[in-house]
Design a binder for these strands. Structure first.
Lengths: 361, 361
DNA sequence: CTGAAAGCGCTTACAG
DNA sequence: CTGAAAGCGCTTACAG
């Protein structure tokens, strides 16, 4: 167990006061070059690293961000969504010399957990990736007044900072794509309806039908939880209802649905088409390659961290809302042929600046 | 921005000294019941939460663990290994009132990153899940003298604490299973050869052949990096060499290999058998279901955290080494029929207490 | 059982 | 440009 150096010792070694050493460490310009050099050399020499705890306590800032992710959510394992998100957060934090504290918390937190996250004062701010509506943590953070940001907008508090994608618009576009190809019995496997992403994607699905003056068949709407497993299970229920296409609110649900289709002898896209959401790496690799709405997951995490850091360093600036662009990636899983070309060729231009089409190379 | 309560204020409100409040908070037995109650009530009433920073600085312990995972490793995204591991760590930490600081660090750390992890003093100990041999972080931690534990043994420092599975033994058993079924041209897609798990699984593969007095064909050994993609790519190279079975050192490499097999018109297990490693959820779901070596990933993370916490709280106790049991899970991907029953039925009993056979329900 | 005091290792006005 | 001093919010011997 090495004895850790302190400011005091560096001061002694370099023949200055500890105030001066502190100033050198903090790049305070009003230190004589000569002095600075001497101190820096000593620091280098003994490989001194200031104690982050003491620094934070005295300075009032920890340079730590809390990242809260719902524990137990199957998506954590079935799907690289959260890993990629975490990496985005981590990279942005590294770039700004922040560290990240990870909380995999049960969504119905015990009161104690919330207190720990909120009042610990171990982090300067919080990123909530749980996206649950009416998350009690949000209320607690609001009350505490410490900076935080959500991944995914919060419908009950529109004045909270968040970063999100246009889930409604992107989904509308995906459904429109299927409609344009002639599909009519388009089912959807939704995300959890207690998460805004799940709600918004379902809403986008409905909007597309309304835009086209087509009826919505409630029998073709089933609720999943973003996991591969739920995609499989819900697809099994959907098959007897004979959809000709499916929009799954996540790629892994689409992968699960494909598994169910295969087991039931359905050929994709010949017998049934499918579109996913996310564009995780696996989407391009399955058979057939999955048409999907690509969202910038890593960037979402990075932007969340950056906006939060900004919020911490400039507290006056009001809540920030960031909407990141998505794009529809066309691959093999929804076919390309127009099935019933009659009267379908309406040029509905979606009002969606953030969404683009791309064709996968 | 709420004003945060301090010990001092609680003391004033409850008419005692701040020493007493501190004792109440820390469950010091030598406080009169009556006093304790009064203080606790005030604490409850104003929802006071002690400042963790100050507590740590004064107490010398932060109750924070650092978890270091190699960034950029494709496995982080292609595979739930790290997410499940993280969850294990997180759950154990929650249970012991520890928090976890996550470091997704480039494996060839900048010197600065190492310093931050090691000397920050923001955490009481470190879990290294990078498993890279000759990790500079290990040297730094060793020098610093602060407690840490590895996921995966370290061949150069056998006296470091770690938790691992018997990779050699498990693999030997998996290969023996294939040999017993009559396969002879058994290829392997190894893990990265700069990680001990990759090395040990390859070593187990070789050991099995030696045990059976069979030659090892270097053409049937290709190196992957645990990712689905590398499984696909290396399998493409392997196919012309006509293996009749493949042992992939991770399930996702097996999944990638299956993709290559399918594209080349090979039927599994009719034309070629395959065994994976990990038993991630997807293993049971692909077509055909994957025979694999199940390792307790979440438990590995949990045990690592628990042993580390123990090491922190009882520093004298020497290095701990934990080997967790694995089991061979037999599913459809390697077939069941003995192909060439002649002379194969040797009853080699592997010397492996930690490995069991199970058949998936 | 309780309090006054020193101390954890820093930062940051305040003087000079 | 530099130092002495107060302070961040706790813990923990030391007295009593």
């Amino acid at each position: 167990m090495n004895h850790s150096m302190t400011l005091e010792e560096i001061a002694k070694l370099s023949g200055v006061s500890r105030s001066t050493v502190s100033r050198v460490i903090n790049d305070d310009p009003k230190v004589r070059q000569e002095t600075r050099q001497r101190v820096l050399q000593i620091i280098q020499q003994v490989n001194y690293q200031p104690n982050a705890l003491a620094r934070s306590l005295a300075g009032g800032r920890t340079r730590v961000l809390s990242l809260v992710i719902p524990e137990g959510v199957t998506r954590l394992f079935s799907d690289p969504y959260f890993p990629i998100l975490i990496q985005g957060v981590s990279m942005a934090c590294n770039a700004h010399d922040y560290s990240v504290m990870l909380w995999l918390a049960d969504p119905d937190y015990e009161r104690r957990t919330i207190s720990r996250i909120v009042q610990d004062k171990l982090s300067d701010g919080t990123i909530i990736a749980s996206m649950l509506n009416d998350d009690p943590l949000v209320e607690a953070l609001l009350e505490d007044g410490s900076p935080f940001i959500l991944i995914g907008r919060n419908p009950t508090h529109e004045n909270i900072s968040y970063v999100d994608v246009d889930n409604q618009g992107s989904t509308r576009l995906a459904i429109a794509h299927l409609l344009r190809l002639g599909y009519r019995r388009i089912a959807t496997i939704t995300g959890p309806q207690n998460m805004i992403a799940g709600l918004d994607r379902l809403e986008g699905y409905k909007q597309a039908f309304r835009q086209w003056d087509l009826p919505i068949d409630p029998d073709l709407i089933v609720e999943g939880d973003f996991s591969e497993d739920s995609g499989y299970t819900t697809m099994q229920r959907l098959i007897p209802r004979r959809p000709d296409a499916v929009f799954a609110a996540s790629d892994y649900m689409a992968i699960g649905a494909l598994r169910a289709m295969r087991e039931n002898g359905l050929r994709v896209p010949h017998d049934i088409a499918i579109i996913g959401f996310d564009d995780v790496p696996m989407a391009a690799r399955i058979d057939p390659p999955l048409t999907t709405v690509r969202q910038p997951i890593q960037k979402t995490g990075a932007i969340a961290a950056e906006v939060l850091i900004d919020l911490i360093e400039f507290p006056k600036t009001g809540p920030r809302r960031v909407i990141l662009p998505t794009e529809l990636v066309i691959r093999g899983s929804c076919g390309t042929a127009i099935r019933t070309p009659n009267e379908l060729d309406r040029t509905d231009q979606p009002d969606l600046r953030t969404t683009n089409f791309v064709t996968d190379s």
